[in-house]
Design a protein around this nucleic acid. Structure first.
Lengths: 141, 141
DNA sequence: TCTTGAACCTGTAGTTACTATAGATTCTAT
DNA sequence: ATAGAATCTATAGTAACTACAGGTTCAAGA
């Protein structure tokens, strides 16, 4: 009868998140309502650790709660196909690449500024940082 | 007397954000309190468009309001000592680099997962993306 | 067994960066 | 002059947590 069980605190510790976060995920419908002790304390099993870990990893990867609910549907209702999961991951990857590109430009601008800084400040009209980011707008208009 | 002026609506439209967001940035101290008409409507100039655009771009890049306030100090208080400005710019650049690194890892993880997934060939039970995120946990226990 | 004190419970409030709504006022174009 | 679009202020709602408050339960030591 050694079916390993966990308190919410142990669960949270395993996955390195806060107890309140687990509560929140339960309220949000990502984590199920687990069985309780006589006194009302939540009892978790290994599968819950797996699930919570999945949720946390997805959050780190930039998925929203809503998106994760979608992903979990694939697990909970296995009538879905893997292709949907793949599509979501690809979309996410594209957005991440976009952010990387933008940040790279910003970093170049910052470095440029460091190089150009000679003690006199820039006015709003010729600040290399502002200009670096303003380009975006010119292209649009 | 053709100093181009803009209403808050025109400003927002230019930068593709909501009027309320401009209000919010004013309250947050990112946008200045502009001159008003007799009746109290805000009047903006070109420099405000530039500034708002900069703020929006920075937000897209993951900077917090607080960080953007720091960045804007470069422009608003150009009397900083050169060394001070350089230090701030370099610190920002380091943070940006950190973000780039994080996002790069994230993208690799996503791409790896996508690459391992054929798409629509099989059901959720053997979807490598789901597996990839579950595995993480096994390593911990 | 009895008793602390840590962990847990529910519920509400605070956080960030907006977004939406309400009700009043102002601007603009016919 | 007047309709209606845009603006004004102020407040409430959103996402994804985080942090209390104030009570109850659990586990370990005396």
């Amino acid at each position: 009868m050694n079916t390993t069980q966990f308190s919410i605190g142990q669960l949270a510790k395993q996955v390195k998140c806060k107890v309140e976060t687990v509560h929140y995920y339960e309220k949000s419908g990502l984590m199920p309502e687990p069985p309780r002790t006589e006194g009302g304390h939540r009892i978790y099993a290994l599968s819950h650790i797996k699930r919570l870990n999945f949720i946390r990893r997805c959050r780190e990867l930039g998925f929203s709660i809503k998106q994760i609910r979608e992903l979990l549907k694939f697990i909970d209702e296995p009538d879905h196909y893997c292709g949907e999961v793949k599509a979501m991951a690809m979309l996410q990857a594209r957005e991440v690449q976009q952010k990387i590109d933008d940040l790279t430009r910003l970093k170049l601008a910052l470095n440029e500024m460091v190089g150009q800084c000679k003690g006199s400040g820039y006015s709003i009209d010729d600040c290399p940082i502002i200009d670096a980011l303003y380009i975006e707008n010119n292209q649009l208009s």
